[in-house]
Amino acid sequence: MKTVIICLCALACIGLILAAGCTSGTGSNGTTVPSSAAGASGQAAVDQDRVISLTNGTYSFNASIDQISTTVLPSGSHEVDIFVRVTDTGTTPLQLQWYSTLTNAKGSSFGGIGVSHGGDGSETPPLGPGQPASGRDYVTITSDQDYQSLKNGAALTVNFFTEPSGNQTPASFSATWTLDPADFP
């Protein structure tokens, strides 16, 4: 089980590395969007108020951002809380684990697979068709300069992994949203 998840994580990392680039564009909210904001699947980033439908031959679910908030920790680091909502829209029950990555306009990334939420990411309970769940992930940014850079344009990429149920093969998905600079006061 752990070997399968590690392999899926490695494949997602390779996809993110291949998708990363050095240019950027402008999102519909006027912020600069890093070129690495294209998810591992190559899909373009969408505004953070949009629901993204993710599907393959077995699983189907919708993902959206519920809320993003920031706390300054006693150490001076910034903890960016990311609340994601998912709904099983398919006919197959599923359970998801996910990791969040924040990328600034210069292409620097924070968090990621095996890093966000102290390395644990976030997860849902088992979901049946039509069932929703929300989960909290977080990314810790230790530098004020890195945190401030998110105000100039940022994207959130969430890498989802299914927990195998029954005889189903695990699957991975990626969704990317452009973020509002107001999320980083």
Rank of each mutant, 00 (worst) to 15 (best):
K2N: 15
V4Y: 04
C7W: 02
L8T: 02
C13A: 04
I14F: 04
L16I: 02
L16N: 15
I17K: 11
L18K: 12
L18G: 09
G21N: 15
C22V: 11
C22H: 12
T23S: 14
G25T: 15
T26V: 15
G27A: 15
N29C: 05
S35Y: 03
S35H: 07
A37M: 10
A38W: 09
S41V: 02
S41I: 00
G42V: 07
G42E: 12
V46C: 04
D47W: 00
V51T: 15
V51C: 06
V51D: 06
I52D: 06
L54E: 10
L54N: 12
T55M: 03
T55K: 13
G57E: 10
Y59F: 09
S60C: 07
A63W: 02
Q67Y: 00
I68D: 07
S69T: 15
S69R: 12
T70R: 05
T70I: 09
L73A: 09
L73V: 05
P74A: 06
P74L: 07
S75Q: 11
G76C: 03
S77A: 15
E79V: 03
E79I: 00
F83P: 00
V84Y: 06
V86E: 10
G90D: 12
T92W: 02
Q97M: 12
W98G: 13
S100D: 15
S100V: 05
S100W: 01
T101E: 12
N104I: 03
A105I: 04
A105T: 07
S109A: 14
G111T: 13
G112D: 09
G112Y: 01
G118P: 02
S122I: 02
S122N: 06
P125R: 13
L127I: 13
P129I: 09
P129R: 03
Q131I: 02
A133L: 01
S134C: 03
R136M: 13
T142H: 12
S143I: 00
D144F: 00
D146W: 01
Q148M: 04
L150P: 07
N152R: 06
G153Y: 03
T157A: 06
T157E: 14
F160R: 04
E163R: 08
T169F: 04
T169P: 11
T169M: 04
F173N: 10
L179V: 09
A182C: 03
